[in-house]
Design a protein around this nucleic acid. Structure first.
Length: 808
RNA sequence: GCCGAGGUGGCGGAACUGGCAGACGCACGGGACUCAAAAUCCCGCGAUAGCAAUAUCAUAAGGGUUCAACUCCCUUCCUCGGCACCA
């Protein structure tokens, strides 16, 4: 018996599949389209991470299963090669990003061929190629024209040592990812996408899309909607008022001071009236210089300064209250000012204690507010017309009162900010805008797209705060599209999330050169039937993709407004209880294992580890066990083929195989890959036993085995299908039907309990009646011992499962 | 701190809607084959007591509901992931 030669067999089918176009579907004609999408990888190293492979083989197994179930599965792949991850990798290895990209593309695609996924290789998408980013720029222009792209000041992360702007993901605990210096905030002009304009729709659709609650909650929390009231406090003896937002209007009587964020306008506007201007300036300066690290460190120890000479007036009782500046109030949320209710807010309480401000209880909750803040709901006290009302009622009542007196109104606030898409970096699509001294900002005409990313040797960020493209005069200098005069190009590139927020719209339309996507094509293929990806993208990437799809829908390009019918988040692959990373020294190179054990073994091993939802723990020793199984399975099939008739007659064999069809099918539908594999293993073991017992197994069993293992181990499945005498690919076949008669046993083992404890098991015919089962149970010798002297209180019968005799 | 997911043998993990805890695999022990080894095959494998049949205990800890709890409820602890002064 020959051993399973994975290298030879995998190479053979790889070639044949490619030649025969087995993985392609006719995008216009197929009757049952199924768009099976996986998150395309970003090349931040030479090759695929085993974590990518982990995600992809599960996704592919599901896609292949759907294909066998009769769907026309479109399964594309590409590379998210633009962006900071790739650029940083190039910088680290001191090579030009262009060369690195070409090399990684080749290696990634080779590896993706190796793992045996049914990708349509004629439709890859690489975000860094002009024929793709042309349309990323087009997308920007549509956003601009719709008024959804605008320019505004924003604070960015700045590393004083590297003299560069950093993205949020490059700032780790307030320190620069590369040099570990503490980062600062800087104000810079940036381009934004107005995602906040779509916030209610993004929230509302979550009610009906078929995603797990976990992912929906993640998005909901990120959007962070809170309802309450907005109202203004006047400043005594002065004109302007201070606008605030609160979720607890019921506590207004307990507002004993106000706090402004350091950036608040009022400070500049009322300079003349402030008595301690110098001290305040000092505080503002310090606050500005504070690194993120210090700011979070001071989380518990709040700092601030009173504005002397000014008092705020609480509109509800006209009491004058002190006014503070403190950096625990953020300029980026709400109005940048708060009413502080120390008795019922922990932060305000901390601050009040430190600065000796009055703490006034207005909600009864059974705690002494002088000792700790009581933040839950309760019954209003010391609040005049609110006294005795529950928090919810009291809030509603207060809002009514504010509205009646024109002091405030019901209001909603979100944590979600507009999406800053500017990056002062090289490796991305240049933002297609031109600034003319006369005409202002002008979009690049669509006919002039793409704005090509120019070659440059030194693409490293410099200290100017502007993108590297700013150094190329020929790039920067341009004619104004409006007046033809001299103008300057935007030198920022866009956020890599812009590249990835629409790639799934491009896959089915890669052959169109005059439009990013074809409406009719997308009507057939959207929404994506199954999107499998990592948990780390359940917030930003998914939210951006939904947002952009909605905009494209509104512009009439796309019929659907939700892009992903179903999203499934897989867990993290770890090793030795920790994340796989270079710094931990637990890197797993997938190539090595594919070479040694074959793609099928690697696939099966990764899928057998654990429930994919929860992630898996890679251990080298397990790999050889799976290799053993692959050989065992192959050997069994070969032996059957060698010495058998065509058709299986033996009932036991049929029972075993048909049960396996059912179990594997059910598990794959539920994405329970690990137990599907266990089911195949059990089936294999049983067939070996049966064979050893001398019973005949027909070659039709091999056909069934090939089909049910096909989604998981495609190479071996195809090989066996071929050896069973078929010319056409196993992936053009239908998933086998199981015969219900074989799946249901005629006789079952009935569990007999006494007082809930297992005491005996008896064989009974299926669907036995309660009376008969109880009778048999009581007759059991073992059971008699337990109930002999006792009275039977009642008997519980669970059909086809158990009889429980309860005694007194 | 908040949100989410988890905690089951030596290890990775199974367990449908509350109904036989430990499927499947790894590691380990014993045996067969072999001059020997590898490979392969067979048997055993939660703990305690017992020659055994069997009994008792056991799903992070403690309590509760139930005829019956890994599964539901309450309290506490731990691990992982995300967010982090969100008014």
């Amino acid at each position: 018996m020959e051993k399973y030669d994975h290298k030879k067999i995998e190479a053979k089918w790889q070639k044949i599949w490619q030649e025969q176009g087995v993985n392609q579907v006719d995008l216009d004609k197929v009757p049952k389209p199924f768009y099976n999408l996986m998150m395309f990888p970003y090349p931040s190293a030479e090759g695929l991470h085993v974590g990518n492979v982990y995600a992809f083989v599960h996704s592919d197994a599901y896609g292949r299963f759907q294909r066998l179930k009769g769907f026309d599965v479109f399964e594309p792949i590409g590379l998210d090669g633009f962006g900071i991850h790739s650029e940083n990798y190039a910088i680290r290895i001191k090579e030009h990003i262009k060369n690195v990209s070409a090399r990684t593309e080749k290696h990634f695609y080779e590896q993706l061929h190796m793992i045996g996924n049914q990708y349509d290789w004629n439709r890859t998408v690489e975000t860094y190629k002009p024929d793709y980013y042309k349309w990323t720029q087009w997308l920007f222009l549509q956003m601009y024209k719709k008024g959804l792209a605008y320019r505004d000041k924003a604070s960015v992360n700045w590393c004083p040592s590297c003299k560069t702007v950093l993205s949020d993901e490059q700032v780790i605990n307030g320190r620069c990812e590369r040099c570990s210096s503490e980062t600062e905030k800087r104000q810079m002009k940036q381009w934004f996408f107005k995602i906040t304009a779509y916030v209610e729709r993004l929230l509302k659709n979550l009610e009906w899309i078929n995603w797990s609650a976990e992912v929906k909650i993640g998005q909901k929390n990120w959007i962070g909607k809170s309802e309450g009231a907005s109202l203004s406090f006047s400043v005594a003896d002065s004109q302007p008022t201070i606008e605030i937002f609160t979720t607890r209007p019921d506590t207004l009587f307990g507002a004993t001071f106000m706090v402004l964020c350091p950036e608040h306008q009022l400070i500049k506007n009322l300079k003349d009236k402030i008595e301690n201007l110098k001290e305040i300036d000092d505080y503002l300066k310090k606050a500005q210089q504070k690194s993120d690290l210090e700011r979070t460190d001071l989380n518990k120890n709040k700092t601030g300064i009173e504005i002397k000479g000014l008092k705020a007036v609480n509109p509800v009782n006209n009491k004058k209250i002190p006014l503070f500046i403190a950096d625990y109030v953020l300029s980026s949320y709400g109005t940048g000012a708060i009413m502080a209710v120390p008795a019922h807010d922990q932060r305000d309480w901390d601050f009040a204690k430190k600065y000796g401000i009055e703490i006034k209880e207005v909600v009864k909750g059974g705690k002494n507010v002088q000792e700790e803040a009581y933040i839950d709901s309760g019954v209003s006290v010391n609040s005049e017309f609110l006294d005795g009302l529950e928090t919810k009622e009291a809030s509603a009542r207060m809002i009514k009162w504010l509205e009646k007196n024109h002091l405030g109104k019901r209001a909603v606030n979100y944590k979600l900010r507009d999406w800053c898409v500017s990056r002062q970096r090289y490796w991305g699509p240049p933002i297609p805008m031109i600034e003319c001294a006369k005409c202002g900002w002008q979009p690049v005409p669509e006919k002039d797209l793409p704005v090509l990313l120019p070659d440059m040797d030194n693409f490293l960020p410099d200290g100017t705060g502007k993108g590297p493209l700013n150094k190329i005069k020929e790039f920067v200098n341009a004619d104004c599209p409006q007046c033809g005069g001299k103008a300057k190009r935007e030198t920022d590139v866009s956020d890599p999330f812009v590249d990835s927020c629409w790639y799934f719209l491009r896959y089915p339309c890669t052959e169109f050169t005059d439009q990013p996507f074809d409406k009719k094509r997308l009507e057939k293929w959207l929404p994506v039937n199954m999107y499998i990806g990592g948990k780390e993208h359940t917030v930003l990437h998914l939210l951006y993709s939904r947002f952009i799809t909605m905009v494209m829908h509104d512009l009439g390009y796309v019929k659907e407004e939700e892009p992903f019918k179903r999203f499934f988040a897989h867990g993290l692959l770890i090793k030795d209880k920790s994340k796989i990373s270079k710094s931990k020294g637990n890197i797993v190179n997938p190539d090595e294992y594919i070479d040694k054990f074959g793609a099928d073994s690697v696939r099966l091993y990764l899928m057998f580890l654990n429930d994919v939802r929860l992630g898996g723990d890679w251990r080298d020793s397990g790999m050889s066990g799976m290799f053993k199984f692959v050989n065992r399975f192959y050997k069994l099939a070969e032996e059957i083929l060698k010495n058998s008739d065509k058709k299986t007659e033996n009932q036991d064999v049929l029972k075993i195989t048909h049960k396996a069809i059912k179990r594997v099918g059910d598990d794959l539908e539920k994405l329970k890959f690990n137990t599907a594999i266990a089911a195949i293993m059990e089936c294999t073991n049983s067939l070996y036993e049966i064979e050893a017992a001398g019973k005949k197994i027909g070659s039709d069993v091999v056909e069934i085995l090939a089909k049910i293992i096909a989604p998981l181990a495609p190479f071996m499945a195809e090989e066996l299908w071929n050896q069973a005498g078929h010319k056409e690919s196993v992936f053009k076949q239908k998933w086998p039907e199981y015969n219900p008669e074989f799946v249901q046993d005629k006789e079952i083992e009935l569990v007999i309990q006494v007082c809930g404890k297992l005491r005996d098991k008896i064989k009974v015919p299926i669907n036995i009646s309660e009376e008969k089962a109880s009778e048999l149970a009581k007759q059991s010798v073992k059971i008699k011992n337990y109930i002999s002297e006792k009275k039977i209180k009642k008997i519980i019968f669970v059909k086809n499962r158990l009889v429980n005799i309860v005694t007194s």
